[in-house]
Design a protein around this nucleic acid. Structure first.
Lengths: 151, 151
DNA sequence: TAAAAATACTCCATAGGTATTTTAT
DNA sequence: ATAAAATACCTATGGAGTATTTTTA
């Protein structure tokens, strides 16, 4: 058997559960005690070493379990950071950007710029708002547009 | 769907495959091209972003794929280090240790020491080799024992 | 047109749940 | 005696393979 992320997350939840209980840790993972028991058993078998001392009243990590805990925590933390990072970067590549510009500019310079930008970032939609020069700033401040272009 | 280690390893193998081919990368993972294709597809769907530009002649990572690559590599590297580490520590907690000692010591001091050590490390077996004082060193050098104790 | 990726489909392994048994206090 | 972990068993999901289709240089 190979180590899986599910096993690592199970171990981490168990190690973090200050209550020291399979049942409690399982609830936090939204799985049953039975499933958590199985995951920890798998993990221990894969490593070939016992990580948790069980008793019916309270559980605690073995020496090896305590050594492993911060390392596993770091790996999962790194992974979660990576996933969040991707999600954030992705959000920069999609969505809607609203631009206020004077009508002359909106009909001459901008279409070409928008077209080339669209080629690079096809999932970003751009909404052009024709504005009198003197109202551009107020539209930005009001939040009606994301930014404005003026002379 | 959740990210899995298999998906991460698949992505890493593909990114590392300088040949730029699903088929080749799949072989290194000892899975079929079909399975690798599925894993990458899953991974991309989970992240909601494309990581690999495919063509029938050559594949390459997208911008996001290139950013992700070193991060994924690090996480998997950390994990593999952790597993090796456990294996090494485990080997310190099992196995056989051979000790050469003079008969007097072997029958007086050592039994108690061995007993208390055994309580801590039940999987380490200790073999006592009675030796004349003058032969202890040579037994160590010959590799017949792991270490010797003498006056 | 040929080489490579994607897909359809099938089978089996495994994950997780429920119900029950075992264990330790 | 009781509370908690382990286990037995069942079902459903998913992973990987084979065979086929689609794609693009």
């Amino acid at each position: 058997m190979n180590v899986t992320l599910r096993q690592l997350r199970a171990f981490l939840a168990l190690a973090l559960a200050r209550t020291g209980s399979f049942t409690l840790a399982a609830e936090r993972l939204y799985i049953t005690q039975s499933a958590l028991s199985g995951l920890i058993k798998e993990f221990e078998q894969t490593l070939g070493i016992r990580l948790v001392d069980r008793s019916t009243r309270r559980i605690s990590l073995t020496g090896m379990g305590q050594e492993l805990f911060p390392l596993v925590e770091k790996i999962l933390h790194d992974l979660d950071c990576l996933l969040v990072n991707v999600a954030e970067r992705k959000s920069l590549k999609t969505g809607l950007v609203r631009v206020a510009a004077p009508q002359l500019m909106a009909s001459t310079l901008l279409p070409e710029m928008i077209a080339s930008y669209h080629a690079e970032h096809p999932d970003v939609h751009i909404k052009l708002v024709d504005s009198a020069v003197e109202s551009i700033v107020s539209r930005v401040f009001s939040g009606e547009v994301d930014f404005g272009i003026g002379p």
